[in-house]
């Protein structure tokens, strides 16, 4: 990291995912680089969200979901027995498709993660974390006077930024975003995209999006999925200007989707 060479944060090697009898992902190989935004695109049902949820083991919740292959985070297999999923998720935060703040105050929303991870010893620690997280999520100015009001009372875009603040409050290394703007209007979307650009300075970001424009705007690397297979993976510029694969070409030019 001290060198200029960008380190591999995630190495996804030969990953297959099954929901019961149905295979959702086939032999996926992707590298996620540190402090970059990697976009996963493809038509709906192509498995991009499935891959994202494998990266912090959110698929564990689903009983019928089985996974094979290796997913390495900083060279360590996250599916190994030695890994505690709770600690993993503290390192890998997640922002969901629909903003899902807890029905609690804005303050409690942000401070919840640090609390359960033992990052708060005095109340002042919490205040500090809440302020820095909300500032970094670009929400501080809008809510600093009403930290005690419920998070569910905010607008959709604000709610999503609150969820981002909540995710970064535990100082993760990676943030996974699952179509974070799909439920938002264009202005709120622009705001979040700006934010993603700022956040990549400190965090590694993997984002699933159905909007190719968004992928083109925010990401450095893009992976294109189709029917559970990784069709093409490369620099965003290259994918959007000079795709090697005909399918990719058809998709980004809007032939199907």
């Amino acid at each position: 990291m001290s060198e200029n060479k960008i380190a591999n944060k995630y190495q996804v090697r030969d990953v297959n995912v099954f929901y019961g009898d149905k295979q959702a992902l086939f032999n996926i190989e992707v590298d996620v680089l540190e402090n970059q935004v990697t976009a996963l695109i493809g038509p709906s049902g192509c498995g991009k969200s499935t891959l994202l949820r494998c990266l912090n083991r959110m698929n564990d919740v689903i009983d019928v979901c089985k996974i094979s292959g290796d997913i390495l985070l900083d060279g360590q297999d996250i599916y190994s027995k030695k890994i505690d999923v709770v600690e993993l998720r503290a390192r890998v935060g997640m922002v969901f498709q629909k903003p899902n703040p807890f029905p609690k105050s804005i303050y409690d929303n942000v401070v919840y993660g640090p609390k359960i991870h033992g990052m708060i010893e005095h109340k002042s620690d919490g205040d500090e974390i809440v302020e820095t997280s909300l500032k970094r999520a670009g929400l501080w100015e809008e809510v600093k006077d009403r930290l005690d009001s419920p998070g569910t009372g905010l607008s959709g875009g604000q709610q999503q930024r609150l969820c981002i603040a909540r995710a970064i409050a535990v100082s993760p290394e990676v943030i996974l975003m699952d179509e974070p703007c799909s439920a938002l209007d264009p202005i709120a979307t622009a705001r979040i995209e700006e934010l993603i650009d700022e956040l990549k300075e400190k965090f590694t970001i993997v984002i699933v999006t159905h909007s190719m424009q968004q992928a083109a705007r925010v990401s450095q690397k893009t992976a294109f999925f189709h029917l559970g297979k990784l069709v093409e993976f490369g620099d965003t510029d290259q994918i959007f200007t000079n795709p090697h694969n005909q399918q990719t070409q058809d998709y980004i030019t809007g032939r199907y989707g």
Binding site: L88, F96, I116
Partner: peptide
Amino acid sequence: VPPSIREAALGIGASKMQTILHHVLPL
């Protein structure tokens, strides 16, 4: 109680028991 609340808590790294005791059960 909608699954999104559970996902939110699990996503920050709450254990299943914490998710239920802190969020789902109070609701």
